Simulated assay, not measured.
Amino acid sequence: MTTITDPSYVDPALINPRALRLVEAFKDALARLRDEEGLTFDDINAVTDVLQQMQKATGVPLALAAMPLYGELFQGGQDGYTPSEDVQSPTFIPGSPRIDNPGTLPMRPDEPGTPLIVSGRVLDGHGQPLVGAKLDIYHAANNGNYSGLWDDGAPKYNLRGHLFTDADGRYTFTTITPVAYADAATMAVDRVIEAAAALGRSLYRPAHIHYEVHHPDLITPWTGETYFKGDPVIPVDFVGAKIAHRALQGDTALHEDPEDIAAHGFQGPYRSTEFDFVLKTRTSPDTITPKGESA
């Protein structure tokens, strides 16, 4: 049976006012780029072609493939709190094992890399500790691979674990020092190499540790990465030139004293870093003065 309908009819219930506004705003932005920067349709085609090649090579959603272009725009924490990414990384795997606090991330007996002791506190906007906050922690191995995503012989939860903060909001864990890495699938796409170079960026990510922080008092869980101050890859980070906010960069120290090394049970020099998360809870002020800055 054939149903004849009015071809000009659009169901009002399906119209999304927010979508209409965003599309018009996006077109206005493109028009400004056209008039002020000489944007052409060929330019848009070139960008979308590279993004499609990246998506095909990596298998990640197209929005994530485009993160080098816009990642820093959606970074939270511009109100004095620890900046968040508000985007769950495609490298996250749920169900990591619980470790003690202090504890050690699961790793192989011969895990390559320099030992690293990470510590810090999870605080609210009043500087009070968030007791019992759950920290999901993970990072890449020395070969740049994330366990559970590629079959390179590493256990599924290698360098992945979670812990809960103590009565002072403190957490401490031992792992190996992350290193800069590049995604092999992305590097295999010639157009991506050219595009990154044109933007003055490396194909490498700076060394970083991923966290997800959960607590009943948080308005939203915190998701993001912490970096290491002085890493030369940070200014040319492939994912975004500003993604490594200064507030996300922690100092590190190299420990080479033999007695200190032996006291910690290591076979050679190790590093340490301390990083405090300051997160907005339901009772926190809207804006705070970041640590180390004057009001």
Rank of each mutant, 00 (worst) to 15 (best):
S96W: 03
A154M: 12
F41K: 08
P269H: 08
A207N: 02
A13F: 01
Y81N: 00
A196C: 06
N101T: 05
R191D: 15
S284T: 02
A46P: 09
D35H: 12
A241V: 14
D110I: 06
L39C: 03
N143P: 06
I261M: 07
D100P: 00
Y81T: 01
F275M: 14
I243L: 13
I234S: 02
R21C: 04
F74C: 13
H139K: 02
F164E: 13
W222N: 02
A133H: 06
L105Y: 05
A133N: 08
V118Q: 05
S96V: 11
P216F: 07
Y70E: 13
E212D: 09
T172P: 09
A46G: 15
L279M: 10
A188K: 12
D217A: 10
L22D: 14
V122C: 03
T91E: 14
L116I: 04
F277H: 00
I288Y: 08
L254V: 12
T220E: 15
Y181S: 15
P206W: 03
A195T: 10
L130R: 04
T40M: 05
G268P: 03
T283N: 13
N158L: 01
F277E: 00
S272E: 09
H162N: 14
H210S: 10
K229I: 07
A295T: 11
T58S: 14
P94Y: 07
A29Y: 08
A185H: 06
T91N: 12
I219Q: 03
G224A: 02
P285A: 02
A244P: 06
S96H: 10
A13V: 05
P106L: 01
K56F: 14
T40N: 07
T58D: 10
Y9S: 13
L123V: 10
I243V: 13
F41C: 07
N158Q: 08
D251K: 01
A154V: 12
S84T: 05
F74P: 12
P109K: 02
P258N: 05
G224T: 04
V122H: 00
G169V: 06
R271K: 14
D151C: 07
H214D: 14
L116V: 05
P115A: 07
P7V: 00
